[in-house]
Design a protein around this nucleic acid. Structure first.
Ligand SMILES: [Zn+2]
Ligand SMILES: [Zn+2]
Length: 753
DNA sequence: AGCACGCCGACT
DNA sequence: GTCGGCGTGCTC
């Protein structure tokens, strides 16, 4: 029986939307197991693929009934399956939902080194080498390595003598080429000998639940509800809505313990930036079995090691950044998404997915509980809770009885010197900085640079232009003297005078963090001042290094562009200043207010926790903005209600769904034409579907990277189904393949610049 | 992703 | 006349 050949479906980790059928000959049929790796010919190459279907050839004539020749796989390496049918179903669902080829999505399931590509070698023809003078001359130009060994890698030869010379040699029969794929070492052999990367060890805390801290009544109630769900098994989603400092982590810990007790494993997702040793230690200190740590900062060898520890169940808790949603936890009982509102759960390039949303899908497929935790839930999650799709659990009390956080609002309209570069260094801010330095404490200053080159604000009254259709701020296109909405394409002339107060001071172009840093250095010459932004920290290493020095108090004032304090304990920070809050409040995005509320809450939450952090300064022209009022009172729900009015009216999420189609290319006219065409075709197709709106096309306000021009078309729908159907129709009719234009689809977009 | 096939511009 | 650019379409 085992001698009979079997038919297998193979998926390749390439942008291919189909899987491929192969025969596994009799001697391999025993190894033809779901999820295993195969070496198979595809086109002219030998590639590594993965078995995603095994069928007995009940119909021996299958080969003759299908319209292509079924090839045989070359080999099935000995290593165990890379994924289960369950995980494959999950990734297939995700590929379909996000409109990416299944092969692209497959890549995110695989550990580093799982795939090998064949390499092409060049060989010296048999008859070459006899010492004819004529041949001498011909082979003179070839590298000596090739002449000596008789072979070399094609790409090495091309880099030496060029492609045309190679072709010439082949034509004259001097050289031949052949593809080779070295049979990969099994995953079992790879990296086994490596010492564990684990340098973290238990510090304090106990493995014994009896010695864990006592819970508050609210924590007890939350724990009971979640434990009951874990006990009964099956998919159950929760929103753990707890104010900062209410002790969500302690509830996570109990839920994890309960899950382990049921012999199930746990995935904890944490925003990339918060995945620090301190975060991991929280779990390491409580669970004897240890935790796996998975994020993009690991080396390939480390990623493989952690992947394998999880796959082999050597460790039963994985703490991971967003890509961890694809980890091979085969008996998954619980997924925790901490700070679920954090935008870093959204992957923006290649395979754009949202790990928080996928956590719910995976929980459903794996029959696991899912806890989404946040003090400021994303509106999508909060609305899901209101509709009863997610069970809401509140933690209203503060765990540490600290004083209420205090945020001081500084009115930038009062600043007379806003025109010069000292504008954002208001007298109040400077006096706070001075006091901080006098106490030998640290200050963290945020200046969102992204705000400056996008929208235009009156320097004297704070007026901002908004789109009449989309309720987002307009972006400035300097060259055309135009203000544009980057969602719907609305445009108007950029007037030289403020429409509200007639001031001529209408823009903030050219003020950046560098200048603030320079100015601070002049004002506080003896202090150690550094900048943390993309220019100062090119890579993760630089970032970590700067944060580490800040932590060690080798820096007094750190200026930065984003909230980089998450997950770090900076004990000596006593001042946090948001220099230009309008950059966040009026960022051209319908989620600007939601984001600002999150940031304000997060910063002031720290003020309550760290006793030293005495001041949070938020400088803005718009001191009366509702976000500020609500955030000051920590009134999330009122803010939600307020903000939802606009969302409902304009059918933005969570009351509508979005799919963004991006177009980019080297030719300005080609991209523009394609975008216009896509917009009009979309408008024709949407009518019979109903409930759909098409915004745009509009040129992207983003700086064109690498000379590329970008346009976008935003599809908005009251139901997901019709929205998806529209994209399918556009795709199937070929409107997403336009010459010279790369089209990408972003489902549930977050970043829409 | 590769790779081949195929159709128009500037070269021997 | 060809060499070579890349747009298009396929790979079991
Ligand atoms: Zn004004
Ligand atoms: Zn608009």
């Amino acid at each position: 029986m085992s001698d009979a050949a079997v038919l297998i479906d193979v998926a390749f980790p390439l942008p291919l939307k189909n899987t491929f059928k192969y025969k596994a000959p009799g001697d391999m049929s025993g190894s033809a197991v779901f999820g295993k790796r195969v070496i198979a010919p595809l086109g002219k190459k030998l590639l590594t693929g993965f078995i995603v279907g095994v069928s007995q050839p009940t119909d021996p004539n299958f080969a003759s009934t299908c319209n292509y020749e079924i090839k045989e796989v070359v080999s099935i390496p000995e290593d165990p399956p890379f994924f289960t049918e369950q995980l494959w179903r999950f990734i297939s669902w995700a590929a379909d939902y996000y409109f990416v080829p299944v092969g692209t999505a497959l890549k995110s399931l695989l550990p580093p080194g799982a795939t090998k590509k064949s390499k092409r070698w060049v060989f010296l023809a048999q008859n070459v080498g006899s010492d004819t003078c004529e041949q001498r001359q011909e082979t003179d130009s070839l590298p000596s390595v090739l002449l000596k060994k008789g072979r070399m890698l094609e790409k090495d030869l091309i880099s030496r003598i060029g492609e045309s010379a190679l072709k010439d040699c082949i034509k004259r029969g001097l050289l031949t080429t052949q593809d080779y794929l070295e049979i990969p070492r099994t995953m079992d052999q790879r990296g086994r000998s490596k010492k564990p990367i684990r340098t973290l060890s238990k510090q304090n805390g106990s493995y014994d639940p009896a010695l864990w801290p006592e819970l508050t009544p609210c924590q007890v109630a939350a724990t009971n509800t979640i434990s009951a769900a874990i006990e009964s098994g099956g998919f159950q989603p929760f929103l753990l809505y707890g104010v900062t400092g209410s002790g969500k982590t302690e509830v996570y810990i109990r839920a994890i313990a309960k899950t382990l007790e049921k012999d199930k494993d746990v995935l904890v997702l944490v925003p990339e930036i918060a995945l620090t040793p301190q975060t991991v230690r929280v779990f390491l200190d409580r669970f004897e079995g240890g935790v796996a740590l998975f994020h993009s900062g690991l080396t390939p060898a480390q990623r493989l090691q952690e992947w394998r520890r999880i796959k082999e169940r050597q460790v039963r808790i994985a703490v991971a950044a967003r890509s961890g949603i694809f980890l091979p936890i085969d008996s998954l009982g619980l997924i925790i998404v901490d700070e679920e509102h954090d935008p870093s759960y959204k992957q923006e390039d290649g395979f754009p997915y949202n790990a928080r949303d996928l956590a719910l899908v995976r929980g459903m497929l794996d029959a696991a509980c899912v806890i989404l935790g946040s003090a400021t839930p994303s509106f999508e999650t909060f609305e899901n809770a209101r509709r009863g799709k997610i069970t809401r659990i509140d933690l209203p009390e503060r765990y540490h009885a600290g004083q209420m956080p205090r945020v001081e609002i500084v009115d930038l309209k009062d600043s007379k010197r806003i025109g010069d570069r000292k504008g954002f260094l208001t007298p109040l801010l400077l006096s706070h900085i001075q006091e901080t330095l006098d106490r030998r404490e640290q200050a963290l200053l945020f200046l969102n640079r992204r705000g400056f080159d996008t929208f235009v604000q009156c320097k004297s009254c704070g007026f901002i232009f908004r789109c009449p259709n989309c309720d987002i701020s307009l972006t400035h296109h300097k060259s055309k003297q135009q203000l544009r909405c980057h969602l719907c394409g609305y445009s108007q002339f950029a007037p030289p005078l403020c429409p509200k107060c007639a001031s001529a001071a209408m823009s903030f172009h050219g003020i950046g963090t560098q200048k603030v840093e320079e100015e601070l250095k002049k004002l506080f010459p003896t202090s150690r001042i550094e900048r943390l932004d993309r220019d100062a920290a090119h890579n993760q290493e630089d970032l970590v290094a700067i944060l580490e020095r800040f932590r060690n108090h080798e820096i007094d004032i750190l200026t930065g562009t984003q909230m980089i304090v998450k997950g770090h304990d900076f004990a000596r920070i006593s001042l946090v200043g948001v220099l230009y809050g309008d950059a966040s409040l009026h960022f051209p995005d319908f989620r600007a207010a939601e984001r600002t509320f999150q940031v304000l809450t997060q910063v002031s939450g720290r003020a309550g926790r760290d006793r030293r952090l005495s001041s949070v300064l938020f400088q803005t022209f718009d001191t009366e903005h509702p976000v500020i009022r609500y955030a000051a009172r920590q009134a999330y729900e009122e803010f939600f209600e307020y903000e939802c009015e606009v969302r409902r009216e304009l059918a933005y999420p969570p009351f509508g769904h979005l799919i963004l189609i991006r177009l980019e290319g080297n030719s300005e006219t080609k991209v523009e034409q394609a975008a216009i065409r896509l917009g009009s075709v979309g408008r024709m197709l949407k009518a019979p579907l109903g409930g759909l709106t098409i915004l745009g096309p509009a040129p992207s306000p983003r700086k064109k990277a690498g000379g590329k021009y970008r346009w976008q078309v935003l599809l908005k729908g009251t139901t997901r189904e019709n929205l998806r159907r529209l994209v399918q129709q556009l795709r199937d009719a070929g409107h997403l393949n336009q010459p010279g234009v790369k089209v990408t689809i972003d489902v549930d977009p977050i970043e829409m610049m």
